[in-house]
Design a protein around this nucleic acid. Structure first.
Length: 650
DNA sequence: CTAGGGTTAG
């Protein structure tokens, strides 16, 4: 390898014959030697020796170095491509975190003479796993069976993993039982079960491998140790550890780290510490595991004390390490220390990782600073289940049935709607009402209607609306009617005769039932209100109101702001009084007036933000150089530099 | 010349 690094060495290899150049490219791909690889590329071009096989090797080389763009350029330049060209490029996209591009390539193959083989399907299925596309994965499954490629162990395991990632353990188990299981797929299956907390099933698969002892490998040990950690079964864990020692796999750093973790999860901090001390090598995961072992057993200070030792050891923290020490800070309620670590994470580029942000929410919530928790939550670019759950449990622990909490639940429910999680939606609705004592509003109920409609359960949606006491507004009706149109269930829209009461029939006359069109009855519209937290005080505004003690200042400020954005393309506002002083504008003006110049302005609103305010706030964020975050009934709008995180679609 | 399972968080 050393010889290759010098240009002369590369030249010698590449020019001494096509076979040698191929070997060179392979070695360079392995070592991820991009610049030497480019040199070989150049030589091959000059020698006009860049044929199919060398081209494929080059694609592989660029892909191995993460340069998918260069790999694709070589791919495009090839006058002849075979299945290997496709496979190498697809794998490049897969490993570069661009699974959708890999799947595009698969579709491209339909038009090419090259037929997909087992390599292609293994890679394509891995792309489906990463992209989370069950539909495509199932199509691949069908084509694998049709092409008779299902017996390749690689393909079988990729299939199993695809179902684990995109569907669930049931489909994965079906794949496992259909093929003759090998270690790889058994390991995958055990981990799949453990992730779901299905320890009994995991144990059964472990037994399947146990029956053929010589098949155990170090990944099986990892899966087994993870199972023990999940079960908190120290006896089994110790046995597995003993087996690992006998097999000589304990030197593997993954296995060693897992042993530390297993002991920590079983509550044996001392044993975890001994296992940690015995590790021949320590990486971030080793340190994270031991810190987590301490923190998970209530020894927060001990966990925090390890941080400087880790730094001394020359190990750089990652998002996991930050999450662990932030949790320890929450446990000790040392929020200042947590903030210092958060600043540390900012510097090392981990502050934006969801793991870190979620840990911050938890830390603040546990440390009693619920509004800082909410600020973190509101400022997040992407919120996952953990973020929502952390925020909700934070509110719940603080006994907060505030407007903010109610709005957070609107967010949760609409997330369930978007993801099609009907049962979860109902679970959250009940949790909110029963455990937190928040009476659901029409906004919450509308999410449930949306949820049922999206699941195609139109009759349930209709009966939900009929039986639930709420002031149904246009949004809910529109949701149901649109769903009727989409699902072509016009009968329901007219009030299906078999099950509906007279009440439903009057409600469901096709046009006049649509409340917006029915001027006579009209729907009582909930007054729009917005609120903002300033120095632990909530200030509430409704449209055009002058109740606030600083109303004069606020209105002056708002007029100034509107004047400032007029040249930026906002002219309608001045003529329309009703929207000029909408509550969200008042709250934002108040925020700008009272908050320090760099602080982001966080405003909540009970209804959806209107178009005019949306445009105005975008421009204000630009003109006043302020970050404005508005949480409306539907979602967050984060306005920065004249742009909104919702992409002006809400 | 292209392909599979892996440790740390909640």
């Amino acid at each position: 390898m050393r010889a290759l690094r010098s240009p002369g060495g590369v030249a010698a290899w590449a020019s001494s014959g096509p076979g040698a150049a191929l070997a060179a490219l392979k070695a360079l791909a392995e070592a991820q030697e991009l610049s030497s690889g480019k040199a070989v590329h150049g030589r091959l071009l000059r020698a006009r020796a860049l044929g199919l096989v060398h081209g494929n090797a080059l694609i592989h080389l660029y892909a191995s170095c993460g340069r998918t763009y260069l790999a694709h350029r070589v791919f495009d330049a090839l006058s002849l491509r075979n299945v290997v060209s496709y496979g190498a490029l697809m794998a490049g996209y897969l490993h570069a975190g661009l699974p959708a591009a890999g799947l595009d390539l698969l579709r491209h193959m339909d038009l090419a003479p090259a037929r997909p083989n087992e390599f292609i399907y293994a890679t394509a299925l891995a792309c489906c796993s990463d992209a989370g596309t069950l539909r495509t994965g199932e199509q691949c499954h069908g084509r694998v069976l049709k092409a008779g490629l299902g017996t390749f162990p690689y393909v079988g395991n990729s299939l199993l993993c695809m179902y684990l990632a995109c569907s669930g353990v049931e489909d994965a188990a079906r794949v496992l039982s259909a093929a003759s299981p090998d270690v790889y797929s058994c390991n995958s299956m055990i981990n799949g079960y453990v992730d779901q907390g299905l320890f009994g099933d995991a144990m059964a698969v472990l037994g399947l491998i146990l029956a053929e002892v010589d098949q155990w490998d170090h990944v099986t040990f990892l899966a087994a140790l993870g199972l023990c950690a999940g079960l908190k079964d120290l006896r089994l864990g110790t046995q597995i550890h003993g087996q690992a020692l006998r097999r000589g796999v304990e030197g593997n750093i993954f296995v060693g780290n897992s042993v530390v973790d297993m002991h920590g999860k079983c509550g044996e901090v001392g044993a975890a510490w001994r296992a940690f001390c015995e590790l021949p090598d320590r990486n971030v995961v080793s340190w994270s595991s031991i810190m987590a072992a301490f923190a998970q057993n209530g020894l927060f200070e001990e966990a925090l004390r390890l941080w400087p030792e880790m730094e001394e050891d020359g190990v750089r923290p990652n998002d996991f390490s930050y999450a662990i020490v932030l949790a320890a800070c929450g446990g000790l309620s040392v929020l200042r220390h947590g903030e210092a670590l958060s600043a540390h994470a900012e510097k090392t580029g981990f502050r934006g990782h969801s793991l870190v942000e979620n840990a911050l929410i938890n830390m603040y919530a546990r440390g009693g600073s619920i509004w800082d928790a909410h600020k973190t939550f509101a400022g997040m670019r992407r919120r996952d289940t953990v973020s929502w759950n952390s925020m909700i449990s934070g509110f719940s622990q603080h006994g907060l049935a505030s407007p903010t909490t109610a709005v957070t639940f609107v967010g949760v429910l609409s997330a369930c709607d978007r993801l099609g999680l009907v049962d979860d939606g109902f679970r959250y609705l009940n949790q909110m009402a029963d455990q937190m004592g928040i009476s659901p509003t029409v906004e919450h109920y509308t999410c449930i209607v949306g949820l049922l409609c999206r699941a195609g359960r139109l009759e349930d949606a209709e009966s939900f609306m009929r039986t639930t006491e709420a002031e149904w507004d246009a949004v809910a009706w529109r949701t149901l009617l649109c769903a009727c149109l989409i699902h072509k269930n016009h009968g329901l829209g007219r009030g299906s005769p078999s099950r509906s009461s007279t009440a439903t029939q009057t409600m469901w006359e096709p046009t006049s039932c649509y409340p917006e069109a029915d001027a006579g009855k009209g729907i009582k519209k909930e007054p729009g209100s917005s609120w903002i937290q300033v120095r632990n005080q909530t200030h509430v505004f409704v449209s055009g109101d002058r109740e606030h003690p600083r109303a004069d200042e606020i209105y002056t400020k708002l007029r100034d702001l509107l004047a400032a954005i007029r040249p930026l393309g906002m002219c309608r506002t001045s003529t329309e009084f009703s929207t000029t002083f909408h509550s969200e504008k008042l709250a934002v003006a108040f925020g700008i007036l009272t908050m320090p110049p760099t602080a982001p302005i966080h405003v909540m609103k009970n209804l959806r933000i209107c178009d005019d305010c949306h445009t105005a706030l975008s421009l204000i964020s630009l003109a006043a150089a302020r970050t404005v975050v508005v949480r409306d009934a539907n979602r967050f709008h984060c306005f920065v530099d004249g742009r909104c995180s919702c992409g002006s679609y809400w």
